[in-house]
């Protein structure tokens, strides 16, 4: 996976800013995508391109269980969110619905990667490569079940052993 990164250097980016409450009644994924990150950055949907990444701090996606959050990001073009940590429901929604990859990175990647950098993510080698800066960071490997669900293409395609 390759793409450009949009960096939001803050913790606790919540589901209310990822997709504000009034849009929860909307079920059309492409319509939701028009409002991705609206509570934090109104320009985001104009900037984002297919395959891009988001980089953020701790507890990304905290708050609501709204699956609209990973849906809005995914249909806006985001293929992975890199963060220091994720809120639990956002994480399982992203994986089980196969919308995008929630990738935990360390402080080195969080501090070293800048907004606009071109990244390459390799989830087999657990590496995040900053192509703009020529640096390589380790990502936290997915727990075994999570990796199997990702490889299957979401929870409904996964068969428990």
């Amino acid at each position: 996976m390759r793409g450009r990164v949009h960096k939001y250097a803050r913790d606790n980016i919540d589901t209310d800013v990822i997709i504000p409450g009034p849009y929860l009644k909307i079920m059309d994924h492409n319509e939701l995508a028009k409002h991705a990150m609206e509570g934090l950055d109104k320009e985001f949907v104009k900037k984002v391109r297919k395959g891009d990444f988001i980089l953020a701090g701790r507890n990304f996606g905290c708050g609501s269980s709204r699956e609209h959050a990973p849906i809005a990001l995914s249909y806006a073009g985001v293929s992975a969110v890199l963060a220091l940590s994720f809120a639990r429901i956002f994480y399982r929604n992203a994986v089980d619905g196969a919308y995008l990859l929630p990738i935990e990175v360390g402080e080195d990647a969080y501090n070293g990667i800048d907004d606009g950098d071109e990244l390459e993510i390799d989830i087999e080698r657990n590496e995040v490569r900053d192509l703009s800066k020529g640096r390589v960071y380790a990502m936290k490997p997915f727990p075994p079940l999570i990796k199997r669900i990702i490889d299957a293409g979401g929870l409904f395609n996964y068969t428990p052993e």
Partner: peptide
């Protein structure tokens, strides 16, 4: 516990 609609559908 709470979860999203894909998990609930499952």
């Amino acid at each position: 516990t709470g979860m999203g609609h894909t998990d609930i559908a499952y």
